[in-house]
């Protein structure tokens, strides 16, 4: 085309304005018509025919993504949730509080108060009773402290301690312990049966049990407040699973852990506790 070839002039096109105009008109008519037909099918005919039990107006509104005149039935979970499992919500304010927290400010508190049981370096003096906190997620520590304060989680020891703290202090001390170095461990997969290892890593879809690791594993891809489990003592973990299963502990949002723990057999709970107790990573 850089070189025009002097062949027979083709019959295509013309510089005639009338031809240009008819091109413009017919192209536009075709496209607008196609859009119109699609809109009628997509917004009127299909919703009307396929949404049974609603009036046509509502059906069309739904196709737009609007509720229409339809009354949205109340969420059945809403009434039950009138007493929330926890008062902690992961709002921007909470996240900002945590990200502005200072581990340095938390140091004194950790040494004066928490260290007696949980260890100044976050390694518990009695891990069967008091969890290790070194390297625990800041959000999880903060959430448990807030729940002890509000009474959503019951403990005669922790309640008065937490009640004496401000939210900033909780965030600071949580940041302090999150920054401590935990023992170098890995899951004790060789100490348990394969099916327990699978339960931890993949869950059991038949019983609707998700994998423990999906929330409590190293990626912590679940809710913010899920704690890391690796490195807690086996009796402590087993006791907490039992408490969730018997509803004695109930500060799990959406009853996640109560639902799961309820379905675990005592043997599974025991084996999972051993699994997450862990073993030295160098083994």
């Amino acid at each position: 085309m850089s070189e025009t070839s002097p062949l027979t002039p083709g019959p295509i096109g013309s510089d005639h304005p009338a031809s240009d105009r008819s091109w413009r008109i017919w192209t536009s008519v075709f496209i607008a018509g196609f859009v119109l037909v699609s809109l009628v099918i997509g917004f009127v005919i299909l919703p009307w025919r396929s949404e049974s039990g609603v009036d046509p107006f509502t059906a069309i509104c739904r196709a737009l993504g609007l509720p229409g005149s339809e009354k949205i039935p109340p969420d059945p979970g809403a009434a039950k949730a009138s007493a929330p499992a926890s008062n902690v919500t992961w709002t921007i304010e909470t996240n900002r509080l945590l990200s502005n927290a200072s581990a340095a400010k938390g140091t004194a508190l950790a040494k004066d108060t928490c260290g007696a049981c949980h260890g100044e370096d976050g390694k518990s003096t009695d891990p069967e009773q008091f969890p290790n906190l070194a390297g625990q997620s800041q959000a999880a520590i903060f959430k448990e402290l807030a729940d002890f304060q509000s009474g959503d989680r019951k403990s005669d020891i922790m309640a008065p301690i937490a009640q004496a703290l401000t939210r900033e202090q909780m965030a600071d001390v949580a940041a302090y312990y999150a920054a401590q170095k935990p023992d170098d461990l890995r899951a004790a997969d060789s100490a348990v049966m394969l099916k327990v290892d699978l339960l931890a890593r993949e869950g059991d879809p038949k019983r609707g049990i998700p994998s423990c690791d999906s929330c409590h594993g190293p990626s912590r891809s679940g809710p913010e407040d899920a704690p890391l489990l690796l490195g807690q003592s086996a009796p402590y973990i087993e006791k907490q699973i039992g408490n969730f299963g018997s509803q004695t502990r109930h500060n799990d949002v959406f009853e996640r852990m109560r639902t799961i723990a309820h379905q675990l057999t005592p043997e599974e709970a025991h084996a999972l506790a051993i699994y997450y107790h862990g073993m030295p990573a160098s083994n």
């Binding site: 299909l46 919703p47 196709a63 737009l64």
Partner: peptide, 8 residues
């Protein structure tokens, strides 16, 4: 998004 726009 509503189904109508997906259809369109």
């Amino acid at each position: 998004h509503g189904t109508g726009f997906k259809f369109l």
